[in-house]
Write a protein that binds this DNA or RNA. Structure first.
Length: 747
DNA sequence: TAACAACGCTTTTTT
DNA sequence: AGCGTTGTTA
């Protein structure tokens, strides 16, 4: 080994170096935010290859997102001295499972050509089953069933392994649907996301010889974002690592933000207990953020009880204080943030280094509107998923049915798009034939056509499209997949349909289809394209050009920017009411971790803001705007005051008597709700958002005590922090309220 | 019976 | 604001 080949070691600190050079045996790296986690992982892979511990093809490296996988691949390949290496087993849990499952599909009763259903396909299938089984859709929604099925799969449970404890209509019906759902998937030769992992585990369990192949191949296993693995993913890992025991996991319990998807923090908390002789290395030096940002994040996360605890430190400069802003409404907030970017930041910072991170995807809209208006370029990251657009899904559905006749979901999707007079009633007939004669929908359609009057318009159209399927199927063996796509779009009438619409939307769709055809050229053939498309969340994300980044906090995980804006820190939005309702305390801790992730994305400057009135959605009918008066997020109060600077924009408006009339875009005949709220607050002495209290007063309320609140009615105290009470109200669920607005119930 | 228009209900986070 | 469901028309 020569010296130059060890360049990757030069810039590492001692802990990082120890992690990179660790030889065999289980290794757990607890890596705080910004501590060089990716660098350690990539360096370790490079180290293993350069020191000839194994070949590149013998390393299994698992990430959660394609983005992370791509970045890691780039970085590793750049550092390797032998440029010819490739990393065939670097990818997401799902993409690697896909690869494994294609090789051994028969072992679980599938054909290697199986199709991967996305969430929308999944919902459609569930809905079909609900209809076919005559279950009342009003009693149980497909979404709910889907979440049950996902939960079960995340726990590694197949339908016959499930034992329902507290049996009720919802769980029983969901289980019944789950059973049918799995059968339908098998018949259609389809899998969903959960199946990719679960089928692999089933294979590992049932076929030791197959598992042996992977034991022999995977000398080292590395896992990124380990805190977000769920039960079944962990089992998956344990199977694969059980022979060599060279499992290296990197994670941060404070950044666990996917429990709603089944992630179990206990995987990381118990790692060293389950894997004997685990070496644990903590990376606690932060290289990313300024002191102020880091302190803010650390102080906030210290409010969580359930954590391993790390002491992040940094040699970086103090930097500027974290700015806290308060605005009247979401529109003002968007205007102010756009102004800040336009006037102050765009001169010294690249727009690419600025990001606005939101709790919920819909929040980006207000910013988009503003940016369009003042002509600031932006990109929404992860927002509009290319392959989930309806026209793209339609196009792919055509290819799916051509590729695989059994794909009933694809058949149903496009059989009447464009319109061919094949309506609901016809489809129902076809379904009946399919069910009684055990045929797929295409075969059933042929039977149906023979039964019916051949002069019927519907029958003529149906015959025609099925003939087309057959012609295209022939053609798919002779022409390239992208030429086939072009032909299918033209001959099916899809292109004509869009052309006839003559709307800007239709034109955009045509453009997207062109883009699809171009991107198809990246795949070798039809099979390669269809096998991978469902796992590809976005077409080559457009990171080109100078643009402001808009995304959800979840999507920002693993990324960093010079300047971060965090709007919408309001109770109900962040922390999100729905998560509070569903899981209470545990959810608050997860929301807090989410806030921690958000803050720690920032390298230099951080702006947090909240508004007094959040617009929910516009009601078209009476053109009134629905407003929700909001309180600042409890997380605002949990920030360390010596690191933040509260800029009170609220006061400016108060001097103008808090009148919203200068707000030109929202013209309202009456006083705005914000004004009304202000008046009410003034009279009732209710908490005003401008007064952010840091008092440490102790309260004389007790946990468990019954209380009453003017607006929220009766409730019970379930948690106390200083003078702030968390109360479950009978009607409004959990809220956090300062004690002086609460009365004891018997007073 | 299919296509089109009007109504109305919902919005967390994702491979 | 966008989609699915329901109601109306051809």
């Amino acid at each position: 080994m020569n010296v130059t080949s060890q360049n990757y070691l030069l810039t590492l600190n001692n802990q990082q170096k120890e992690a990179v050079m660790h030889n065999d045996g289980p290794l757990l790296i607890l890596a705080g935010a910004g501590s060089g986690k990716t660098k350690v992982l990539t360096s370790r892979v490079v180290h293993l290859i350069e020191t000839q511990k194994c070949f590149a093809s013998q390393i299994l490296c698992v990430t959660f997102t394609n983005k992370a996988a791509n970045e890691m691949r780039d970085r590793i390949l750049k550092s390797l001295s032998a440029k010819s290496s490739s990393l065939p087993w670097l990818g997401t849990f799902h993409s690697i499972s896909n690869k494994i499952l294609r090789k051994h599909a028969e072992a679980v009763g599938l054909k290697s050509s199986f199709t991967i259903l996305d969430t929308l396909d999944q919902l459609r299938l569930i809905k079909n089953i609900i209809e076919a089984e005559n279950i009342d859709i009003k009693k149980i929604s497909p979404k709910l069933v889907a979440s049950f099925i996902d939960d079960w799969k995340n726990k590694g449970l197949t339908p016959n392994e499930i034992k329902i404890n507290n049996s009720n209509y919802i769980t029983d019906t969901s289980l019944k649907i789950y059973t049918i759902y799995q059968n339908r998937l098998k018949i259609m030769n389809c899998v969903d996301f959960g199946d990719l992992i679960l089928h692999c585990v089933t294979i590992f369990k049932k076929f030791p010889d197959i598992l042996g192949i992977y034991h022999a191949n995977f000398k080292y296993i590395l896992v990124d974002e380990y805190q977000d693995t769920n039960f079944i993913q962990n089992i998956w890992l344990n199977f694969l690592s059980s022979k060599n025991n060279n499992l290296c996991c990197v994670g941060d319990d404070d950044q666990s933000i996917y429990s709603w998807r089944g992630a179990e923090v206990k995987n990381i908390l118990n790692f060293d207990k389950i894997n004997k002789n685990t070496k644990v290395i903590k990376l606690e030096q932060n290289y990313r953020s300024t002191q102020n940002i880091l302190d803010t994040a650390s102080f906030l996360i210290s409010h969580n009880e359930d954590r391993l605890g790390k002491k992040l430190w940094s040699e970086n400069s103090k930097g500027s204080l974290v700015e806290i802003n308060c605005y009247n409404n979401g529109y003002d907030e968007a205007v102010a943030i756009a102004d800040e970017i336009e006037k102050n930041l765009s001169k010294k910072t690249s727009l690419n280094q600025i990001a606005i991170l939101v709790r919920a995807a819909f929040q980006t809209r207000e910013f988009e509107d503003r940016f369009i208006k003042i002509n600031l370029p932006y990109r929404v990251v992860g927002g509009l998923k290319f392959y989930e657009r309806s026209e793209i899904k339609d196009a792919i559905a055509y290819l799916r049915i051509v590729y695989q006749q059994s794909d009933d979901l694809a058949f149903e999707r496009i059989i009447n798009t464009p319109k061919r007079s094949i309506g609901e009633a016809t489809l129902k007939e076809i379904h009946n034939i399919s069910k009684t004669s055990n045929l797929n929908l295409e075969q059933a359609s042929i039977v149906y056509c023979e039964q019916e009057n051949e002069k019927n318009k519907t029958i003529i159209n149906l015959k025609k499209i099925i003939t087309n399927f057959q012609i295209w199927r022939q053609l798919s063996n002779q022409t390239s997949h992208y030429e086939l796509m072009e032909k299918v779009l033209d001959e099916s009438g899809y292109t004509t349909m869009l052309l006839n619409e003559r709307t800007p939307e239709a034109e955009a769709k045509l453009e997207n289809l062109k883009e699809l055809i171009i991107s198809m050229k990246n795949y070798e053939n039809l099979q390669g394209f269809l096998e991978n498309i469902s796992l590809q969340t976005s077409a080559e994300e457009e990171w080109l050009g100078e643009k402001i980044n808009l995304m959800t906090i979840h999507a920002a995980k693993g990324l960093e920017f010079d300047v971060i804006f965090l709007p919408g820190w309001e109770e109900g939005l962040f922390p999100h009411q729905r998560s509070i309702d569903e899981k209470g305390h545990i959810a608050i801790e997860e929301e807090r971790r989410l806030a921690y992730v958000a803050i720690t994305r920032s390298k230099k400057e951080l702006f947090i803001s909240f508004v007094n009135n959040r617009r929910i959605f516009a009601n078209k009918k009476d053109k009134e705007i629905d407003w929700m008066p909001t309180l600042p997020s409890r997380f605002i109060e949990e920030l360390p005051k010596e690191n933040i600077n509260i800029k009170n924009n609220f006061n400016n408006y108060k001097e103008q008597d808090f009148d919203f009339n200068q707000d030109q875009l929202i013209q309202q005949p009456t006083r705005s709700p914000g004004w009304q709220r202000y008046q009410k607050a003034k009279n009732n002495n209710v908490i005003l958002t401008k007064k952010i209290s840091y008092s440490n007063n102790k309260t004389n309320f007790k946990v468990g005590e019954g209380v009453i609140h003017e607006d929220f009615g009766q409730g019970k105290v379930i948690h106390i922090e200083d003078n702030k009470l968390i109360i479950i109200f009978k009607k409004y669920g959990e809220k956090k309220i300062i004690d002086k607005f609460i009365k004891k119930i018997n007073e």
